[in-house]
Nucleic acid binder design. Structure first.
Lengths: 246, 246
DNA sequence: GGTAGCCTGTGGTCAGACCACAGGAGGACG
DNA sequence: CGTCCTCCTGTGGTCTGACCACAGGCTACC
């Protein structure tokens, strides 16, 4: 029987089946999903419904699909959290579900936590951070290039903290406001001195972390972020920033 | 011409079109999207491709779809961040993209920030929180019921902070580990005394917030969360919890 | 023994069909 | 003239069947 009553949306059936397989371990990172046609037959739904579910999983960063044949073809489970988080946040910001100010505040909270945690962690690996710091000293960088490196730097910091959730969230928050950040950079009159300023702040933050001074790192990174957003004309100081602990 | 070369995946075209409309304001919360058939015709893609894009938007919490006719039918923009965030986190945890420990740590960071911010905010509205506090005093509550109220309490705290991003993230983090929390509650021998303990902690936290003591609120909420997860046998102390500032 | 070409299975896409449903327009009836 | 009932229309939800592009393995040919 083709189109009977939809007790439940067909694609939801597919989604739940896959989520369950993931949960009980039948499916794991690196594994291949059954082909769309097989899944459809197994679950008694149409292939289009299967595709809708797979599309969701793909955008969420759970699977990767490829055409052709062989072991690399088909849908493969890859837990890539950053991608999905970025898309979600970007769309929500676009749809005005998330005010820009809230995004910035959240970034502040997370970045603060990351800096403090890194400072407190004796086993931290800051190589990537230092490398980026050096790369940003290049005077030939354009504003977009500099900002791209800046994004990488903050991402590297999050990554060094070892928390995948925070790292993904940071990446998502960053990309969700990327266009606004770029826009804002155009509003800054003296970009050269701003770059110099940012470089100094970055160095100071990393120095504090390397020294194990969590308190200083926390304060410096807060000042760094709020400073830039204010200068770029984003986030009109609608109210004091979240959780200044002192 | 039906299936020509896919310069770009067709559904992505649709997604980008809608995101762009959202960005430039052509589309906003409450607005209705064109019908699937119209969108397909406009963009020169098949209806199934349009549906794949809409499905993504629906799961992400950006639109709501309804059958029938009239103003309520069709796809309507509704920025409901919590739903999408919950789904994303839940799936990522299921696919082992996010270790449980990282989820708990992140929750700790956010909840800490919320508590501190609330304590510092003189204009906070804690009515919902107090109501939940009272509701949780009911001795007839089962473990799942109590935990459901507990979830609501923490959500209410986040909501009171006014930051929609953090609120959505907290909700997502919570639901992503909901099954584990429930599971863990079964491992607690003396549930009755645990409930009493939790109640006291909740009251203490709220009292600290009401008193404007950010530092105390921060410490209490950290102890509260780590205490429960430890008791429930979740998150084997793989390492010190992120960012204990003292 | 190589190598070139076919074969197969995969995702990607489209077109067309039907269902269930909700609302509005219009007529029938009091 | 008002009210109710019925059909009509447009919407999402789903399925089927078809074709394309592609990648890899297999096979037959050299």
């Amino acid at each position: 029987m083709p189109q009977t009553v939809a007790t439940q949306r067909a694609w939801r059936t597919v989604l739940e089946r896959i989520e369950n397989d993931l949960l009980i371990g039948t499916l794991g990172p690196g594994d291949r999903l059954p082909s769309e046609r097989d899944l459809a037959a197994d679950l008694g739904v149409g292939r289009s419904s299967v595709r809708e579910a797979l599309r969701v999983l793909e955008v969420m960063g759970l699977i990767r699909t490829a055409t052709g044949s062989g072991p690399q073809a088909g849908a493969i489970v890859i837990a890539t959290p950053s991608g999905g988080m970025s898309t979600l946040l970007r769309l929500q910001v676009a749809a005005q579900g998330f005010p820009l100010a809230d995004v910035v505040q959240t970034r502040l909270v997370l970045e603060d936590a990351v800096a403090a945690a890194l400072a407190a962690d004796a086993a931290r690996d800051m190589d990537a951070v230092h490398a980026l710091l050096d790369a940003m000293d290049d005077d030939g960088l354009s504003a977009p290039e500099f900002l791209a490196l800046d994004a990488q730097l903050h991402y590297a910091l999050a990554e060094a903290s070892g928390n995948t959730v925070i790292t993904a969230m940071m990446a998502g928050l960053r990309t969700s406001i990327e266009s606004y950040v770029l826009e804002g950079s155009a509003r800054i009159e003296d970009w050269t001195s701003m770059v110099a300023h940012l470089r100094t702040e970055h160095r100071d933050i990393v120095t504090a972390i390397d020294a194990g001074d969590a308190d200083a790192a926390s304060h410096l990174i807060r000042a760094h972020i709020t400073g830039y957003y204010t200068a770029a004309g984003l986030v009109p100081d609608r109210r004091a920033v979240l959780t200044e602990n002192d």
